[in-house]
Structure formats: C-alpha cells, structure tokens
Design a protein around this nucleic acid. Structure first.
Lengths: 235, 235
DNA sequence: CTCCGCTGATCCAATCATGAACCATTATTG
DNA sequence: CAATAATGGTTCATGATTGGATCAGCGGAG
C-alpha cells in the first residue's frame, strides 16, 4: 500500500504526517539521537507542502519528541542521553579534568608501593610481559610508540601487584594519557637523552622485580616517577 | 540529480570521516602507534576539505584515539583500539565487586601518604572539620553513626591533601561503605574496645596534622589502617 | 458564498563545508 | 650550522545547506 502518498488519501493533512513520523520514530526508522531528513526531503517523501510538514514538525517539537536547529536539522530526542546524565557520573569523566600535577602526585603515591607488592606477587608471566614491554620500548622508532610500551610496562607492574581494585583505579587514571593536553606534554618533554634515562630506570625496576627485591623496586619506581614529574612539569 | 547521489552525500560531513578513520583504526589499517597519512593526503582520500578533515581529527583527538603534533604528524594512540571496543564502564560500579582485602590494601597505599601531604597543606577549615568529625564520632550513640563520622574524618583528611583527583578516586572507593556486605563486616568487627582504640588513633592522627608533622601523621594513619584491616579480616 | 487548511513561493538567519592563504614547529638536507 | 621542505595550527571569505517566517492563491466543507 502506498502509505506515504498522503495527498491521494482521505486522511491527508498535518495530523496524519505527525502519526507517520511518530511511527517512524517508534519502529526505529529514526532512532534516538538520529537526524531526520531535511524538511525539503520529507516534503517530497510524504508528498505534502513544506508548510504542512513544518506544522507537523512543530507538533512533534512541542511534544518533545524532536528538537530542531536552524542550519543543522531536526533530531529525534534521545531518552538515552537524558537517562545517562541522571545516574552516577563515571570517575573516568571526572578524571579528565585532573591536572598533570595531580596525576603525577597520585601515581607517586600508588605505583612505588604497587611495585613493592609486585615484587612478592609477580608471576613468571608477569615478568615476561614486562621484559617484552622493555624490549618493545627500546626498539620503538618514534615517541608515540615508545610511550605506548612505556605505558604498558607500568600497567604490567600494576597488574603484577594482583589487586584488581588497584588495577581498575589505575586504568581510570591512565585514561588521562589519551587526553590531548597530556599527550602533548609528554611528547614535548621526551628528548632522546631523557628517553635513554627512562629506559635505564625501567630496566632497573624490572630487574629488582625479578630479584624479588621489594625495597629496590619501590625505590627505583619512585625515582623514575620523580624524574618523569620533573621532566613533565619542570619543577 | 546531485541531491540524490547518496554516495557523495554520505562521504561528506565531519562525522562520516570520523567513522571512516575509526574503522581504519579498528580493522588494523592504522595500528596503535602508527602514523596516519598527512592531513593534505587524507583530505584528498576522503574527498573533503582540509577544515572538515581537521574537525574530524579534532574529535578523534578529544576521544584520545589519536595524538597530533606539529611538524611530525598524527599518530594512533596505544589504547585507541581498546577504546574503540570497550565501553567506558563506571569505576564505581566495578569497585563494588572489590574484596575488602583489596580495598584495605589500596587504602593503605594511599591514605598514609595523603596524610603526609595533608600535614603540609591542610587549612584551618580542614583541621576544624576534622575536629568536628572527631567530636561527632565520640558522641555517636550507635555503631552506624560512629561509622559515618569515622568515614567523614577520613574524607576530610583526603580532602586536606588538596588533590582533586585523589579526592575523586577516594570517593569512588569510599562508596563501598554503603554496600551491605561491607557494612555487615564493619559492624561485626567493631567492639566497644576497638572503637575506643580507633578514637585514640584518630585523635593522634589529627593531632599530628595540627602539628604539621607529616611523618607522624603518616605513621599514625598507617597504624590505624593496619589495625582496622586486622580487625576486619582477622589476619 | 465564506471559512479554513493546504499549497507553492520567496526571503531570512544560523550553520556548515569549502578552499585558500599564512603561521609555528619539526625534520631533513646541504 | 643554515636553508629548505614537511606538517599540523589558525584564520578568513565564500557558497551551500537547512530550519524559520511570511504571503498570495486555491479548493473543499459548512
């Protein structure tokens, strides 16, 4: 049946167009948040004049089912986003605003002690993973690749501490590494000389972990992070 | 007619370009750490203007999926593929499943050092708030009320460290206090004698903070948490 | 016939995409 | 070391797209 051709039907008019668009929203043709076709497109699709179509859209807008913006288009209201904002806010999103100084301070609190725990808990697989990160980092051709394996090494150390909660928290903190400002800070601070220093410090950390020397591991990681903070924040 | 050429229309627009590049990252065309083609190259490949392309790249940068640097190029970040697949789960919800042993281990990592920082950063208002928590806790008529002010005291100490990120993380961890299982554990472990010990330890912590004695504050808080862990977990 | 709704058209305002030029930083080359 | 090329960062003018608003005309229902 030619359900879209309203002009030939007895029940033509604005209210019929409203019903059709509502149906399209209900059956998923236009899902929440999606953009409706332009008015000039819908005008042709429903075979009504633009004024009639606009009247229908106005009804839907007043019902809160769509929102319209000049120059952008008309959009189906998204219940999902409304629902999302009502609930508890993800820590990750709150963390995004944290300053590099705050991040480094927290890392300095947590990571050295995690290394101390890891010295007593790391499995052979953990240590092997760290060695791989070391190798990859030293073979890295450019700074982003080095940063990647640097980050993975720290994650591996945290993971070796065998505390799932700690790993989750560190993951959340680590998400900041992907923030543009933070990344720019890292790249700018990473000179070849400093990279060599980092690689040496990394080796000493992993070496201490392999020796099951918790004190040494904690001290080496702390020294490393202090160096990173100095390079990063210039203090 | 040009308006009906859906291929051309689909290829235009910033969001479409974002999707294309995301796909390229997801399917391994541009793996983690690799360098994207230059903007002037992508501009031609996707048949959009450079400004449009750059808008798309900015979106990807804000999502942390790529990193850009003047004179060098744009690079896929290490966690980009992970981010493309894994949704961002609230840390709070993940934390709920953490065991009391894990929680106490993390608190032992963070809180004593936070106390050390707080000794040097606490404002008069911070110290006053701690005193109030102390007073309320000691006047508490029942265990839940004592627990409440006990928790508030710890929050106040964390807050005095003046690290917003730390405060957010601690808030997330602290949410477990409202979990039924955790509460049961606390109530069972809290005898009147132990409560008296806790109050004495609390007073020593706050006293050290008022004296600006970071070492003493850290030691006192660590001792307190070790005591709590022993009482909670019986080890 | 009159009233009301729909039509077709025109213009306006906000937004977007485009293309180009120029700048700042980095890499490469002589 | 100096010069050149490469590359991302920024800005601007222009045209296209899109919803917003108005108006004269047409046609059926009362």
């Amino acid at each position: 049946m030619d359900a879209l051709n309203l002009r030939d039907r007895a029940a033509s008019g604005a209210s019929a167009v409203v019903a059709l668009i509502e149906q399209g929203i209900a059956d998923g043709t236009w899902g929440p948040g999606t953009k409706l076709p332009t008015e000039r497109e819908l005008e042709k699709r429903f075979n009504v004049s633009r004024n009639t179509l606009r009247k229908s859209l106005r009804v839907l807008e007043e019902q809160g089912k769509i929102v319209r913006h000049v120059g952008r288009g008309s959009f189906v209201t998204s219940e999902a986003t409304v629902k999302a904002t009502a609930g508890d806010q993800s820590l990750t999103s709150r963390i995004i605003g944290a300053s590099p100084a705050e991040v480094m301070e927290l890392r300095l609190m947590v990571e050295p002690q995690a290394a101390e725990l890891a010295a007593g808990r790391a499995t052979a697989a953990d240590l092997h993973r760290m060695e791989e990160c070391l190798a990859h980092a030293e073979r890295a051709q450019d700074i982003p690749e080095f940063e990647h394996w640097d980050g993975m090494l720290h994650v591996a150390i945290i993971g070796a501490a065998k505390n799932g909660l700690l790993a989750d928290v560190y993951d959340a903190i680590n998400a900041i590494r992907n923030q543009p400002e933070w990344a720019r800070l890292k790249v700018r601070s990473l000179t070849p000389a400093r990279r060599a220093v980092y690689e040496e410090q990394h080796r000493r950390i992993v070496s201490a972990l392999k020796d099951r020397d918790g004190d040494q591991a904690r001290a080496a990681l702390q020294e490393h992070l202090l160096q990173v903070r100095t390079n990063l924040l210039g203090s």
